[in-house]
Write a protein that binds this DNA or RNA. Structure first.
Lengths: 359, 359
DNA sequence: CTGTTAGCGCCTTCAA
DNA sequence: TTGAAGGCGCTAACAG
């Protein structure tokens, strides 16, 4: 493989000139520049990225740290979409990308900071990590630029950005949709309490209730930790003493769990119970019934993260917030709530409508 | 960040001793080794991978080149599973992983070989790439060890391995399953003709027919190129002049296309037509009806690829073939073919059974 | 067992 | 506009 030396020798110049030519320095005569590129092409030379990375001051590689890829539900391919987006964004500006997938099952976690230092990573994108993680905290004490996906932090004095979507607005829309469909007995299956997206979505729900002059009761809010099984069990229990006409779920995954529990109870969706999700995973278009939810463009979020990070790395400027569009997807899991259903007291059991439809 | 020098100085030894200690060379006294590790821990030192990579003869990074991630059907998350597997396998033996995702839509392809050289990649895993690709051919003319997923090549004199599953056996099992369920009017929606897995699966199908004293007619074999839409259109056309009682599809994606075409024709699955797939994608458990198919463990295939590649890189030994288990998943898209259906001539239209069930 | 020396391939002052 | 020299952080002979 040709090295910079070979090109230099063949072009009759010194290494440094070749280096400058390849890095678009202006202080090179057009003639030699051309000569160098000609020779390079002839020798099929491209700079070695490893050596470049080692010697250069400039940071041209970014990292993606993603958690929950291994342990989580395989139905969840969000991380993959983010990864594709980040890759695309990095590619666009010719940054190298190094990925770090965290397997939360394994004990031997590694320091994010270490990960960056060891690879000369100049900036990092964080996806699905917990802000109470010790390695996250450690990272926050460094000066490595960070972009977080779906987390907006209040950390000051630090190069940190966020990419997310309008969780508040979308969530409000979902709740209003249900409210407008005459639902009043609504249960909320929220995610993880301390989480940014959860609190945004919760605000949205509450706001919608408010606008209808209603209040959301604590006992109708469950915390499913964004997990299908957890949501399933919570719903099972909930249904033993209450029967809402609708469930608002803060993730599709949880909606699947709720659907299962609801069906097992012998209730029909959406005839007896309406259900909404959030995310629009692949499967949501294939569930029975198809899930009404909020589509998030995770690919775009990944891409924007990479772009934002690169910009931060180059300009050394701080705190940016980028929003990516989301979209309310009205499908088949929500139906108008009739007066009878609406007036029925919460009961310990099934409504008369549903007895025949156990699936 | 602490460098090797800092450790050396603090431990009162030279750089090379520290280097050796960290690379587990035996020629170091237990005492100094211990001393070095102590100091390293104290200084929070870990070797810089970039520098290591540059200076070392040993190749400790592998690459994954995957195609079709961007352009293909988003229902297909196979590449992602492979990626996770490769990552896990690399991680296990402390290899670095560099990924190269090919966007076939973009014109500006890059040389695989270049990709490897530029990053000092010592071995490469290929997934979803075409063997008639010019860059693939170029790569084959180098001495870079390769492992291919789901491609078994006949290239000689070269460090090359393959990881796949028993496509022949699984495919045979599928066909026999249909045959045993009394189906005789069977159409095959094959994939891409020149492809390894396609030919293996085809052999399996033929073998099963043979064992039943039957022969597969050319006119009942379509080539859907593993694409949902292609399969959909082929099936639409096919159904205009023939009505099989079963479709064997060489991928789930194509099965979805076939299902759609079949339903649009007003035929019921599996009452009128049985359908089988191959791969067991996420959605196949949620289609209507749930798809009978062959589950492939793509994660394991990715992992085994990484392991095999590493072994090849270390031992310089050649041509290995690793099989990963697959599993026949009997679900709801296949049903026993009754005598009436079986005897019906291929007709230009629907059977009498299905007229009422247009969905 | 340990230190010395010379790179790996490139970038980056500093002088010319 | 160019060249020389030093260095990025580490490994790898080769002495000792």
């Amino acid at each position: 493989m040709a090295t910079i030396k070979d090109v230099a020798k063949r072009a009759g110049v010194s290494n440094s000139v070749v280096s400058r030519a390849f890095n678009n320095y202006p202080d090179i005569s057009e003639k030699t520049r051309q000569k160098i590129f000609d020779v390079a092409k002839e020798l099929n030379y491209t700079p070695n990225i490893v050596a470049k990375n080692l010697s250069s001051k400039k940071q041209k590689t970014i990292g993606l740290i993603a958690s929950g890829i291994f342990t989580e539900n395989t139905k969840d391919t969000i991380s993959f979409e983010v990864l594709k987006g980040v890759y695309t964004g990095a590619q666009e500006k010719e940054y190298e990308l190094s990925i770090f997938l965290i397997d939360s099952l394994k004990q031997e976690q590694k320091s994010y900071t270490q990960f960056c230092r060891d690879r000369k990573i100049g900036g990092i994108i964080l996806q699905g990590i917990r802000t109470d993680d010790r390695y996250f905290k450690e990272l926050m004490n460094t000066d490595i630029p960070c972009v977080m996906v779906d987390v907006v932090s209040d950390i000051e004095n630090r190069l940190i950005g966020s990419v997310t979507s309008d969780n508040y607005g979308a969530s409000k829309k979902v709740a209003k949709h249900l409210l407008e469909h005459n639902h009043r007995k609504i249960a909320v299956v929220a995610g993880t309490r301390e989480t940014y997206v959860n609190s945004e979505r919760f605000k949205g729900t509450k706001k919608a209730f408010e606008e209808f002059g209603l209040e959301l009761s604590d006992e109708d809010v469950m915390y499913g930790e964004f997990a299908e099984e957890k949501a399933y069990y919570l719903t099972k229990t909930y249904l033993e003493y209450k029967q809402p006409t609708a469930f608002i779920c803060y993730s599709d995954l949880m909606a699947y769990g709720v659907m299962r529990a609801v069906k097992e109870k012998g209730l029909r969706i959406p005839e007896d119970v309406s259900i909404t999700g959030f995310d629009d995973l692949l499967i949501s278009n294939f569930t029975q019934p198809r899930l009404t939810t909020v589509r998030q463009d995770f690919f775009e979020m990944g891409k924007q993260s990479a772009l934002l990070l690169q910009q931060m790395m180059e300009s050394k400027e701080g705190k940016k917030l980028v929003y990516v569009e989301n979209e309310f997807m009205e499908r088949d899991s929500v139906r108008y709530c009739n007066e009878k259903q609406r007036k029925d007291e919460y009961s310990n059991g099934q409504t008369e409508y549903s007895n025949d439809y156990i699936t």
